[in-house]
């Protein structure tokens, strides 16, 4: 992942087709086109797992079913705790068989109606519920040589709690960090970079014009700004965080993707 960061690679978020789509085959085609466009442009394809609580199909399964090429250095699959143990192992097995190496382990958004890993599923008998920390430990134990595991950092959470949790994630074996989306230089991200200088940090740049959606995603009110320009903001974030790779949340493939080569300084 350092290699990836040092090569100034964009990590482009791709949302998988939703479970309730009425045009699954068309959505799969659209997903495949976006995926190939990202990979062929030399960027890293990052596929979400039920982002914002919206049920979607699993990224590794889509790659497998659609027969998409995998460059191990250019694919990151998000994996959250809202799965059965059987599903988890199916996902891990598919990733292994397709050569997918990078997993972003997150607790995830879900509801009571979704299956969720139980502590006994991941050999974590000392906790009441499974978070990214327990899931990460479990994957490290059951597949020690197969994956490079990353974790999320949320600069909107109370800092003491978030940094304490981050330390547990690092202790559990996290090898890279992706932040939650930001729209300007952020003190917590600065602190993260100082605290973990040897761990690659990928800064998530919010690429949607609507800040209201970001507020909903992070659970923290970000003031609306009608003049908010994601591309200008991304350029500024590059200046603020020259040592970091960038994750692009909700990038528009129609209007923003082709601008990317000219953005990185």
């Amino acid at each position: 992942m350092f290699h990836t960061v040092q090569n100034k690679m964009y990590h482009v978020e791709i949302l998988p087709p939703k479970q309730d789509t009425e045009q699954l085959e068309a959505d799969l085609e659209s997903f495949s086109k976006k995926y190939n466009r990202v990979i062929n442009s030399g960027y890293c394809a990052c596929i979400t797992d039920n982002a914002m609580g919206l049920l979607g199909f699993q990224g590794s399964e889509i790659i497998d079913v659609m027969g998409l090429d995998v460059n191990p250095e250019k694919v990151v699959i998000h994996l959250n705790t809202f799965h059965t143990k059987e599903d988890l192992h199916n996902i891990l097995d598919t990733c292994k068989s397709r050569g997918i190496k990078y997993l972003l382990i997150i607790s995830g958004d879900g509801s009571d109606r979704l299956p969720r890993l139980k502590p006994e599923d991941v050999n974590a008998m000392d906790v009441e519920s499974v978070t990214s920390v327990e899931l990460l430990k479990y994957i490290k134990d059951c597949c020690p040589d197969d994956f490079v595991l990353g974790v999320a950092f949320n600069p909107y959470e109370p800092p003491n709690h978030e940094f304490e949790k981050m330390q547990r994630k690092i202790d559990a074996g996290a090898s890279f960090i992706i932040t939650q989306p930001i729209v300007e230089k952020n003190d917590r991200v600065d602190e993260l970079l100082k605290k973990y200088p040897h761990i690659p940090v990928i800064v998530d740049a919010w690429m949607n014009k609507k800040l209201q959606i970001l507020s909903e995603a992070v659970g923290y009110k970000i003031p609306d700004d009608e003049t908010f320009d994601p591309v200008v903001t991304l350029k500024k974030l590059h200046r603020d965080y020259p040592q970091c790779g960038f994750y692009l949340s909700l990038l528009s493939f129609k209007t923003q993707f082709d601008l990317l080569p000219g953005i990185w300084p």
Binding site: L24, E61, V65, T84, R113, P115, R116
Partner: peptide, 15 residues
């Protein structure tokens, strides 16, 4: 119980 979530293969087979 907690109903399972369809897999992509399951959904495609159902179609």
């Amino acid at each position: 119980n907690i109903p399972r979530v369809p897999t992509l293969r399951g959904r495609l087979a159902s179609l």
